[in-house]
Simulated assay, not measured.
Amino acid sequence: MEIKKIFNNNVALTEDLQHTEMVVMGKGIAFQKKKGDQIDANKIEKTFMAPSVHFANKLSELMNEIPYEIMVISKDIIDMAASDLHTEFNDSLYLSLADHIYFTIRRSKDGLPVTNALTWEVKKFYKEEYQAACKALNLIEKRTGDRLPSDEAASIALHLFNARQDGSKMEETMRMTNIVNEVTTIVKYHFGIEFDEDSMNYSRFITHLRYFAYRMLRRERNDDDNESLFKQVRIQYPEAYECTRKVQEYLSRQYQMEMTKDEMTYFMIHVHRVSNRETN
């Protein structure tokens, strides 16, 4: 691959024989190189296909501020999480996660508190991401000798989940987490139950809630409602309907969000499943 632009000793913009541009990252990969030189493929540790100029510049800027070892740790965490979660992440995660880990380590060494107010919710609602984040803490400790507080696993889990959502903003992910927590609380108190968080019905319910909250925050609506199905489910599951009505009133008052008839229908079905299991 031919070098088209050098950002620093560890990052360069290259072009292959098919004229495909990519940013490559590797320890000393561009050291004493110049435009037009060939890259040693054995030194490439990460490639970013068809990158934007903004992304390449941001990566270069970040690598001038953050030790290369932290970038490698972040890459390994992302690769490990991608394998565990059977997913792919947005390239932007390499920037945000490395930046986050580096400054968290610095804060911890300076004796500043590392906390996350959403740790409890993240452990409940994003179990797979949280487990991957716990493994990330072990990897960080193994590589750096720094053991970060357990709350940091929640922060990393949010970064992982956020990167699975087509680049949605972290603020949006945190709002979505709050909505899921608030809605489950309404359901729990309406039926006077405690959820079996290991049950399949609860897992399906939470998955439905997460994507429901995601669509609501994005104002994504499907107004082609099935009125007859809504009426049928409302009659069949009257308690689930009453609970759904409470949720609708809360969302309208707190977030100015309105559920469609289809959303209410599927919410009733999930609420009935999860509440019926716990009641029985």
Rank of each mutant, 00 (worst) to 15 (best):
Q131T: 11
Q131N: 08
A132Y: 00
A132H: 04
K135C: 01
K135E: 11
A136D: 01
L137Q: 07
N138W: 02
N138E: 15
E141W: 08
E141D: 10
K142T: 09
K142Y: 12
R143K: 12
R143Y: 07
G145Y: 11
D146T: 15
D146M: 14
D146G: 03
R147E: 11
R147W: 10
L148Y: 10
P149R: 04
S150V: 14
S150G: 11
D151I: 09
D151L: 06
E152Q: 04
A153H: 13
A154H: 08
A154G: 13
A154Y: 06
S155D: 10
S155E: 07
A157M: 07
A157N: 15
L158H: 06
H159F: 06
H159W: 06
H159G: 05
L160T: 06
F161M: 05
F161E: 01
N162R: 12
A163M: 05
Q165N: 14
D166A: 05
G167F: 03
S168P: 00
S168V: 01
K169D: 07
K169I: 00
M170G: 01
M170S: 01
E172N: 09
M174H: 04
M174V: 09
M174W: 04
M174E: 15
R175F: 02
T177D: 09
T177H: 00
T177F: 00
N178Y: 09
I179Q: 08
V180G: 00
V180N: 04
N181L: 08
N181E: 09
N181R: 13
V183R: 07
V183Y: 03
V183M: 14
T185A: 11
T185Y: 10
I186R: 07
I186E: 03
Y189F: 14
F191P: 06
G192E: 13
F195G: 01
F195V: 05
D196V: 02
D196G: 02
D196E: 15
D196M: 07
E197R: 14
D198K: 14
S199F: 10
M200K: 13
M200L: 15
N201C: 13
N201R: 10
S203L: 11
F205K: 00
T207H: 14
H208P: 03
H208Q: 06
L209R: 13
R210Q: 14
Y211K: 11
F212V: 00
A213N: 07
A213Y: 03
R215L: 01
M216F: 01
M216T: 12
L217Y: 03
L217V: 03
R218K: 15
R218H: 14
R219L: 11
E220A: 04
E220Q: 08
R221C: 02
N222L: 13
N222H: 06
N222D: 15
D223F: 10
D223N: 11
D223G: 04
D223Y: 10
D224F: 10
D225A: 05
N226A: 04
E227T: 11
E227Q: 14
L229R: 13
F230G: 01
K231V: 02
K231Q: 12
K231I: 02
V233Y: 05
V233A: 07
R234C: 06
I235T: 15
Q236H: 15
Y237A: 09
P238G: 11
A240L: 06
A240D: 08
Y241A: 09
Y241D: 06
E242M: 12
E242T: 12
E242R: 13
C243D: 15
C243W: 08
C243I: 01
C243N: 11
T244C: 05
K246I: 12
V247F: 02
